[in-house]
């Protein structure tokens, strides 16, 4: 099997299924399959698990480039788009649960919460910024936008910061978990900074060989 075939027939389908697992598990809980349950408050459970999965996938997407360079394996780049699109899908589901199941389609409440609660404002901003990235994720758009595609997709950095910040702000008291996420994000961003402004060790040859840009 060639590398391309391995990615097409093994790695990508596996990552596809793995990314769907959290959703399938929530569906099991929702319908009581396989003895799964969403507990006494299924709405909050759905909202939280979808948000958490979105953030996990967002950080995984950001981990692709560092891993690719540190492992010297340029092919890893091939799974990044799928991870990013899954992250976006989970954010959309998270938002849908909030509007439909949590606020029960009370649009006035949705509007006033967006305005009044900074953590909701941040989340929505992150969601809106993700839309152009999802829309321009196809090969055709990549070619069409050329260099501008890379500048546009650097939006993923502020989006991730907004996502973690949103998580941090909605926690009632125990901030240990959001701080852990913040630390991971900081490491992933620091990698880019070091790579750009020095530390020759990180600007390894294997990266520039195929990477279409510094993303």
């Amino acid at each position: 099997m060639t590398v391309t075939q391995r990615y097409r027939y093994i790695y990508k389908p596996v990552i596809f299924v793995l990314s769907l697992m959290p959703l399938l598990w929530l569906a099991c809980g929702l319908f009581g399959w396989l003895g799964a349950s969403l507990g006494a408050d299924p709405v909050k459970k759905l909202e939280h698990e979808l948000g958490k999965t979105a953030l996990n996938l967002l950080l995984l997407t950001l981990a692709v480039t560092p891993l690719r360079l540190l492992l010297g394996n340029p092919h890893l780049l091939r799974v990044r788009r799928m991870l990013g699109l899954f992250a976006f899908s989970y954010v959309l589901l998270h938002f849908t649960v909030y509007v439909v199941l949590d606020l029960e389609l009370n649009w006035r409440a949705v509007g006033s919460e967006i305005v009044k609660r900074p953590y909701i404002t941040l989340g929505l901003l992150a969601l809106l910024l993700l839309v152009p990235l999802a829309v321009t994720s196809t090969q055709r758009m990549m070619r069409r936008l050329g260099r501008r595609w890379h500048s546009l997709h650097r939006l993923i950095y502020p989006i991730a910061i907004l996502g973690v910040w949103h998580f941090y702000w909605q926690v009632k008291r125990d901030v240990r978990e959001p701080l852990l996420y913040a630390a991971i994000l900081a490491a992933l961003l620091l990698f880019r900074v070091l790579r750009r402004y020095g530390r020759p060790a990180l600007t390894s040859k294997s990266g520039s060989a195929t990477a279409p840009g510094r993303t």
Binding site: D41, V43, D102, N106, A109, S112, E113, K116, R117, Y119, W169, Q170
Partner: peptide, 8 residues
């Protein structure tokens, strides 16, 4: 950080 106007 949240409204108390309604409850679930």
């Amino acid at each position: 950080r949240w409204s108390q106007a309604t409850e679930r």
